[in-house]
């Protein structure tokens, strides 16, 4: 067994759509130890969700894993059958989705939906499952749990429903919790409450978390490690410290300039990243960020930049970091 809880190696994954092959993941590698909290940031379509889903063996049609390996808690996910994967989902690894309004089944009670996952993965009987469900609702800060168990999703507010989703996710004490933009669909105040709850639970339960978001503020408040994704590739990886105070990739730098600074007291100007996201049907040959980068060089257009280690826990894929490329760069800056 590898020392990692999550060990994704060189994952390539494409969607074979009628319009052509969408290369959703290009050589993605992620390692996480037990207890790590990883934030994945990046703009819409960069492959954050697909990465997380593939970890559960949930690749939506018409997606195919082309190469690479996904190992979670010693399971070789990419080689497992549906039946084997079912034993893990909701049990060792669980997920909360973006939209709590639609993620719960409208025709079943809250209790039923929490108990379902307990009955599925433990040998608790109905009565014990109900007790556990009640306990879970208290854990996620829902008052009057007995009454709530008998209610239907439409009787609860959005924030409450997301708490229920969290309760479902935690029901079997998973080793890893994936949160796919868990607060995007909620009001700002409710967002803060849900994040606070997750932070609390992280301490209490000690599970690993993958936090997916486009909101750097969210990751800053809870993640130790951050992976920045761009066009199906992790362009920079590092500790939260490093990413915020020592960003290396041009995209990361742009991303940081485009959000309000956490430390800034005076009103600083926000600078949006110019240009449009990559067309994933026809990704550029070299660095995917090249069309939007301020420092594009000729080599950037031709070849994919390799990873450069900045320090032990920080690496990034940008030609600017490749000393020798930089030095031998005879052709200079392209524009």
């Amino acid at each position: 067994m590898s020392e990692y809880l999550v060990d994704i190696q060189n994952l390539r994954l494409s969607f074979f759509t009628p319009a052509g092959e969408v290369k959703a993941l290009n050589d993605v590698s992620i390692q996480m130890k037990q207890g790590d909290v990883l934030g994945i940031v990046g703009e819409s379509g960069s492959g954050k969700s697909v990465t997380a889903y593939s970890l559960m063996g949930l690749v939506p049609e018409p997606g195919r894993i082309l190469s690479g390996s996904i190992i979670f808690n010693g399971h070789r996910i990419h080689e497992m059958s549906e039946k084997e994967l079912r034993q893990i989902r909701g049990n060792e690894i669980s997920i909360i989705f973006q939209d709590p309004m639609t993620s719960l089944n409208p025709v079943f009670t809250i209790g039923n939906q929490i108990e379902e996952v307990i009955l599925l993965h433990t040998d608790k009987n109905r009565k014990e499952a109900r007790e556990r469900a009640e306990e879970l609702l208290s854990l996620v800060g829902i008052n009057e749990p007995k009454k709530r168990l008998r209610q239907y999703p439409h009787e609860l507010s959005g924030g409450m429903r997301q708490r229920v989703m969290i309760a479902i996710a935690l029901a079997c004490e998973p080793k890893l919790l994936i949160a796919d933009e868990p607060t995007t669909a909620l009001d700002v105040t409710i967002q803060a409450q849900i994040l606070e709850l997750m932070n609390e639970l992280k301490e209490k339960i000690g599970m690993s978390i993958i936090m997916i978001t486009h909101d750097l503020g969210v990751v800053a408040s809870m993640c130790e490690k951050i992976a920045v994704m761009y066009a199906g590739k992790i362009v920079e990886y590092g500790t939260a410290e490093e990413i915020f105070y020592n960003p290396q990739h041009e995209y990361t730098k742009g991303l940081l300039l485009s959000i309000p600074k956490l430390t800034a007291t005076e009103h600083e100007k926000l600078i949006p990243i110019e240009g449009t996201p990559v067309d994933m049907l026809m990704p550029p040959q070299g660095c995917p960020f090249a069309p939007r980068c301020q420092n594009t060089m000729k080599i950037c257009l031709k070849e994919m930049p390799p990873y450069t280690d900045i320090n032990e826990d920080h690496y990034s894929a940008c030609w600017l970091l490749q000393k020798q490329a930089y030095m031998t760069m005879k052709d200079g800056v392209a524009r």
Partner: peptide, 15 residues
Amino acid sequence: GQDYMRTAKAKGVSQ
């Protein structure tokens, strides 16, 4: 295509 079907799958419910 509804989200709650995806939730069911993620819970480990069989097809």
